[in-house]
């Protein structure tokens, strides 16, 4: 892909930047990095403005997207061997759906880019094709009034755009539905599991310091012996809440995400206690496992609502009312159990 840089900066109208639908190794690298590193993802942007995909002319369609580089990449790669104008609006590097939900992919911003790119000098028609998932941020009636353009909503998925264009800009009911396929969910696993593992690491670090405390200072060996039994329950909670939930979402009973995570976590906790004698032989450790693992797994699973494509705020609020007291209670009980373990370990009790 050619370098994407600075169209229309400082209000000047520069020539549209030419892009192609070919994906380079750098684009593939970017696509992978966006799924594993939030820091990378948040900086993976393109300059807003008008882009020429292939060799568009006065009759070519105008497609609108966000300035998240991954969004533009998915769009242009879906339009293999086609010519189109792509109007990239400033969403601060956030994808279309989230940006629409947060109000940055909006009527005003699209009007602004139409004007600053001098779009009307490039085309003879007056039709804009917006991504369907941008509709929660854009009022088509207001946009039509403000810009003079007829607004059409394309399909949910970029991969359906060629079929949509060939069908006289009409999307089938299937193209209009947001799905949440296994492939979609697999891609989300790293961004669920990595932050969870980081929090687990921090927790284990603090715990190991506490376990390592002796009269003569912090003993390294004692810290490891003390914290070791917490590692398996911790990893299990991350596995059941942040890996299994995304992967097996439709097959886990319950509609509430917190309930789904509680079920997988409980299975994980029971497996630990049944399979590992170290846990089975200690009442304290067994209790700690059976309480903290399901609760943590449920919490991690609940967070996955934000990445899903079908959860409503009213539903999340309903879950929250039941789940939050449960989380607080289990956090208190787990802390008490840990403190007991700790005092026993120190030889106080």
């Amino acid at each position: 892909m050619q370098q994407i840089n600075v169209p229309g900066e400082c209000g000047q109208t520069s020539a549209p930047v030419h892009i192609s639908s070919a994906m380079t190794p750098a684009d593939w690298y970017g696509a992978i990095m966006c799924r594993i590193s939030n820091r990378f993802r948040m900086k993976y942007t393109v300059t807003p403005g008008l882009y020429a995909l292939g060799n568009p002319d006065k009759d070519s369609v105008v497609l609108v997207t966000s300035n998240y580089r991954l969004s533009l990449n998915v769009l242009r790669s879906a339009l293999n061997n086609r010519n189109a104008w792509v109007l990239v609006v400033d969403t601060k590097g956030i994808n279309v759906w989230c940006a629409a939900g947060k109000g940055t992919f909006c009527t005003k911003e699209i009007v602004k880019q139409i004007v600053s790119s001098n779009l009307i000098s490039r085309i003879s028609h007056r039709t804009l094709i917006l991504p369907q998932l941008g509709a929660s941020g854009v009022s088509s009636a207001k946009l039509q009034k403000a810009s003079g353009f007829t607004v059409k909503f394309g399909p949910v998925r970029a991969s359906d755009i060629p079929a949509y264009l060939d069908n006289d800009c009409k999307a089938s009911p299937e193209m209009r539905q947001a799905r949440f396929t296994l492939t979609d969910r697999v891609k989300l696993v790293p961004m669920e599991a990595i932050p969870a593992l980081k929090k687990l690491g921090l927790f284990l670090l603090i715990a190991s310091v506490l376990f390592g405390i002796t009269r003569t200072g912090i003993i390294y060996k004692q810290a490891i012996i003390g914290v070791w039994p917490l590692v398996i329950p911790g990893l299990t909670a991350v596995l059941t809440g942040s890996v299994i939930i995304p992967l097996l979402l439709p097959f886990i009973p319950g509609r509430a995400f917190s309930l789904k995570g509680l079920i997988t976590g409980l299975i994980g906790a029971i497996a630990i206690v049944v399979l590992l004698p170290v846990y089975r032989s200690s009442a304290l450790l067994s209790a700690f496992c059976l309480i903290s693992v399901p609760a943590s797994s449920s919490f991690l699973s609940f967070l996955f609502t934000g990445s899903s494509t079908y959860t409503s705020p009213s539903g999340v609020k309903t879950e929250l009312k039941i789940a939050l007291p449960l989380y607080i209670t289990s956090a208190v009980v787990s802390t008490v159990l840990l403190t007991l373990t700790l005092t026993r370990f120190w030889g106080i009790l």
């Binding site: 939900g101 947060k102 009022s139 088509s140 934000g306 705020p313 009213s314 999340v316 929250l320």
Partner: peptide, 19 residues
């Protein structure tokens, strides 16, 4: 947002537990 006749109302938001 897109009903030009004001026939639809919804308390809209993002269904995100973290938020």
């Amino acid at each position: 947002q897109n009903c030009a006749f004001g026939a639809i109302s919804v308390k809209n938001g993002v269904g995100c537990a973290a938020a």
